[in-house]
Design a protein around this nucleic acid. Structure first.
Lengths: 299, 299
DNA sequence: AACCCACATGAATTGAATTCACCTATAAGG
DNA sequence: CCTTATAGGTGAATTCAATTCATGTGGGTT
């Protein structure tokens, strides 16, 4: 294996140098003193440099030996440390995903356990914030953003999510309450919940429903979709949101879409990553899994 | 040998990580790809951490693998460097001796070859200056000083030289010239050569020869003994110097002691070294050799 | 003077590392 | 679509580097 450096011999030398004794080195390495002696002789012969003075029944480093031992000890210490660190490692990969708070809360979090069980060796870390992150500078592998595409730094790859449908949603109690919601006109009796960042708002919805006259200046306003959805679940009014984010609430019946599941389609979310890292298995796997899940939902 | 860290396996891993290929690593290490595969599997199994992703017919580091490879590569690079440095080494020990210019020139230099041939593995470096050197701070193993003993820093060991005899000396031509020198009185016809740093000067010599009236204010003055001796060799006058420093000139006949080899004895030279390093073979050997040589001369 | 301990050394032994032979999977190419 | 070539995986066989064993050496210690 090692036609380069006689690692075994160096290891024996390092221990002997550190302990100033072949016998103690042998003990540390669980071999006989003879083995240590042989290895060190090998090293000395190979390089033609005496490393130890043999003085009576002790050994003393030569100057060359001391210099060499210092370097080699430091190097082994580093290897030891890194190896102990490695032994402490649980997962072999760390995948850091950054996403908008709404996508993280409404979509990712409930599904992440599935990804983790499919990829047990990946330790997923989820960061949620409205800030844009710098993929190059920060330890973020993937950033899931919402909204108009901005200019990306070179080396960034942007994948657009499949279209999501935006529809009015409310709690079942509200839909079947004193002012039932069956047609767009029924909305006039209800509080509108506005999501400020959503690409489609009530104003846009109204353009598709010219006959309905709603006062879009009234109602509740939130700057995060998950807050609008939460308000709708609590029966505070009717929100206009993406089916993507409401999927879980619709499945569990905490929200209903009183006017059906058709509506304007947008492609607001993007999957951002560095080209150079796109083929890393952990990233590729996450990407494939995520788009697979999105596919599944729309199918 | 290695119940601690599987060095062979780490070495295989390092090469594979650096080259991103088991096959190339195998080539570099002069083994078959199979050997590399086995070793890396060993490493992964031993620590229960996957180091490489096997993706089709290539390997890609995991995050853990990459972290580990960085550390391990750096450590091996250091070992490689130190080992190449070691291979370049000629002598296993470097002995740096500092001495007064006179002792270095007159006594040490001519004898150093003998020491070197007795100790072929020691690379002797001789520094000569009038400065006192700091044994702790500088890379000087031994300092040979002349003159009154000063306060030494803690940890310093001072060995005093055996007594040296101070006698008048001159060139044979001068002794046997127009004003032959047979008795102390004959000196009145000759130039006196003064060594300013010598512990015994003409003034002291006169105290032992009350009858002789010499004008000690006249003559040549040097601040280094070797210059005084050189002037005497050149026939410029009569110097009062240590037989120790003149030994070579007396043996070769370039100097003679017209009034005999008896005279005042002083112990001016000291052999200074650090206690902590006194038992280093190179130092001990030099000390033993030097005092042995001094002994031999006085015997 | 006898003993002891730490290291040295050559031959014998062993077992970790390597090779061998065969297998798998996939990208490229016809 | 099928073939081919390639990089790596794997278990058994093999080998040789590393280790042990037996013995020797020398200089302190009692």
């Amino acid at each position: 294996m090692q036609h380069r450096v006689p690692l075994k011999a160096i290891q024996a030398f390092e221990a002997a140098a550190r302990l100033s004794s072949f016998a103690l080195a042998a003990e540390e390495l669980f071999v006989t003193p003879s083995a240590v002696s042989h290895q060190i002789k090998l090293l000395e012969d190979q390089f033609g440099v005496q490393l130890f003075h043999r003085v009576h029944r002790a050994v003393v480093l030569t100057d060359s030996g001391r210099r060499y031992a210092e370097e080699v000890s430091a190097a082994f210490a580093r290897i030891d440390l890194a190896t102990r660190e490695l032994g402490r490692t649980e997962k072999s990969d760390i995948l850091t995903v950054h996403a908008t708070p709404s996508f993280a809360t409404q979509w990712l979090m409930p599904r992440l356990a599935r990804f983790s069980s499919l990829n047990p060796d990946v330790d997923v870390r989820l960061n949620a914030s409205t800030d844009t992150v710098d993929l190059v500078a920060e330890t973020v592998d993937i950033d899931i953003r919402y909204g108009m595409k901005r200019l990306q730094p070179a080396g960034t790859m942007v994948l657009t999510f499949p279209p999501e449908t935006i529809v009015p949603m409310c709690s079942p109690a509200l839909m079947n309450g004193p002012h039932p919601i069956r047609t767009p006109d029924d909305l006039v009796h209800h509080t509108l919940i506005h999501s400020e960042v959503c690409l489609v708002g009530w104003r846009d919805w109204m353009r598709q429903h010219r006959k309905v006259k709603l006062d879009i200046s009234r109602g509740l306003r939130f700057d995060r979709s998950f807050m609008a959805l939460s308000a709708a679940v609590d029966g505070l009014g009717v929100c206009l949101e993406s089916l993507l984010l409401a999927q879980r609430e619709l499945e569990t019946g905490r929200l209903v879409a009183p006017l059906g599941l058709d509506g304007p389609k947008v492609q607001g979310y993007t999957f951002n990553l560095l080209k150079a890292r796109a083929e890393l298995p952990k990233i590729r796997n996450f990407q494939d899994w995520l788009f697979g899940e999105l596919e599944k939902a729309s199918a």
